[in-house]
Computed example of a mutant assay.
Amino acid sequence: MNSLNKKETSRERSIKRLTSAAFELFVVRGYHATSLEAISSEAGLTKGSVYFYFGSKENLILHMFDVLKSDLVDILVEALKEERGTYIDRIIRYIHRGADFGAKRPNELLFMIQIAIEFARQDNTIASAVKELYNEIHDAVEGVIKEAQNSGALSNELEPRSFASMIVAVHDGMMLEWHLRGKQISGPALVKNVRHMLLNGIK
């Protein structure tokens, strides 16, 4: 490995460590209460490393949204758009993939939910970026619902946009409940019960 490749590998490793530390601290402390110095320290890097790689907290969080886009949102949207099974199967697949991601990388999923709540009524770059992520998911869920209505598999009395919001709320609420009561309830059992509710409720 030449020196250029070593530098690039070191850079990627440092960015990954900083991003992982930021996901954890933003969830535990909140966005505004977490300093860039704290993130560097948590990552085991020098105080100036986060400034060197990102320059600002806003740039860091936008990078985190890029990670969420490729590693979570694209996967959830793919689950919904995959034309395999019924529309119920596609929604259940979305719930399962979100739960699988949450089980493996809880801080990242909780971060997305938390930031969406924190910046919901603000008008800035961060608010726009997190809304864009959620809009992709909402649009994909709504698309499945409209397809189901067009095929006659779902009642046209349901308003697609608000019904899609309910599905997304069930998914995010499930993950929040799992986080809050993880020591008292079984994650797989919670997902199973959500699936049961959706199957019977949607029918």
Results as ranks from 00 to 15, higher is better:
Tyr51Trp: 07
Gly98Pro: 15
Arg97Gly: 15
Ile92Asp: 05
Leu36Met: 13
Leu18Asp: 14
Ala103Thr: 15
His171Met: 14
Phe52His: 07
Gly48Ser: 09
Met1Trp: 02
Phe111Val: 07
Tyr134Pro: 11
Ser3Cys: 01
Ser186Trp: 00
Leu72Gly: 11
His63Met: 05
Phe111Ser: 05
His196Trp: 09
Ala79Trp: 01
Ser10Phe: 01
Leu180Lys: 03
Glu159Pro: 00
Lys57Trp: 10
Ala189Trp: 02
Thr125Val: 04
His196Ile: 06
Ala153Arg: 10
Pro106Phe: 01
Ser155Ala: 14
Glu83Phe: 04
Arg121His: 07
Val141Ile: 14
Thr125His: 07
Tyr51Ala: 04
Gly48Asp: 09
Phe52Tyr: 13
Lys69Asn: 08
Leu154Asn: 09
Ala189Asn: 12
Ala116Ser: 13
Lys131Asn: 06
Ser3Glu: 13
Glu82Arg: 10
Arg195Asp: 13
Leu110Arg: 06
Ser70Lys: 14
Ser41Ala: 13
Ile137Tyr: 04
Val73Ser: 14
Ala127Lys: 12
Lys47Val: 03
Phe119Met: 04
Ala120Gln: 06
Phe101Met: 12
Lys203Asn: 15
Gly44Cys: 02
Gln184Asn: 08
Arg105Asn: 10
Ser14Glu: 03
Ser165Tyr: 10
Ser41Tyr: 09
His63Ala: 13
Phe52Gly: 05
Leu36Arg: 03
Ile126Gln: 12
Gly55Cys: 08
Asp66Phe: 01
Glu147Lys: 14
Asn107Met: 02
Val168Cys: 13
Gln114Pro: 15
Ala99Ile: 15
Glu142Thr: 03
Gly143Met: 04
Lys47Met: 07
Val50Thr: 12
Asn156Tyr: 10
Gly152Lys: 04
Tyr31Thr: 05
Met166Lys: 10
Leu72Phe: 08
Leu198Trp: 06
Lys131Gly: 03
Phe26Trp: 10
Ile113Trp: 09
Glu142Leu: 07
Thr34Pro: 00
Gly182Thr: 00
Ile117Thr: 05
Ala43Trp: 00
Val27Ala: 02
Tyr134Gln: 12
Ile39Pro: 11
Lys203Gly: 14
Thr34Glu: 05
Glu157Ile: 12
Asn193Lys: 06
Phe23Gln: 15
Lys146Ala: 08
Ala164Tyr: 08
Asn2Met: 06
